[in-house]
Simulated scan of single mutants.
Amino acid sequence: MKTAELRNKQLHELNSELISLLKTQFILKMQLATQQLSNTNQLRLIRKDIARVKTIITQKYNDHDR
Rank of each mutant, 00 (worst) to 15 (best):
K48S: 10
T3K: 15
L32I: 03
N62A: 11
I56V: 15
M30I: 10
I46S: 01
T3P: 04
S16A: 12
Q25R: 12
K54H: 06
R66D: 07
T55F: 07
V53E: 11
L32C: 08
N8S: 10
L11S: 05
L22G: 02
H64Y: 11
L32N: 14
N8V: 08
I19P: 00
H64L: 15
K60M: 03
Q10P: 04
R52I: 06
Q31G: 04
L14K: 03
K9P: 06
E13V: 05
L21N: 08
I27E: 14
E5I: 03
K60L: 08
T55C: 09
R47M: 05
L43T: 02
T40M: 14
M1K: 08
N39Q: 12
R52E: 14
T40E: 14
Q42V: 00
Q42D: 05
V53I: 07
Q35F: 06
N39I: 05
R52G: 03
T3A: 07
K48H: 00
L21W: 04
I19E: 13
D65S: 14
L45H: 10
H12I: 15
K29R: 13
N15K: 11
Q35A: 13
K29A: 03
A4E: 12
Q25C: 00
I19A: 12
K60Y: 09
H64F: 14
M1P: 10
Q31L: 14
K60H: 08
N15C: 02
S38Y: 02
I46W: 04
M1G: 11
N41M: 13
K54C: 09
K60A: 01
Q31T: 04
I57M: 07
N8H: 09
E5H: 09
E17C: 00
Q35M: 09
K2H: 08
H12P: 06
I46C: 11
L11C: 00
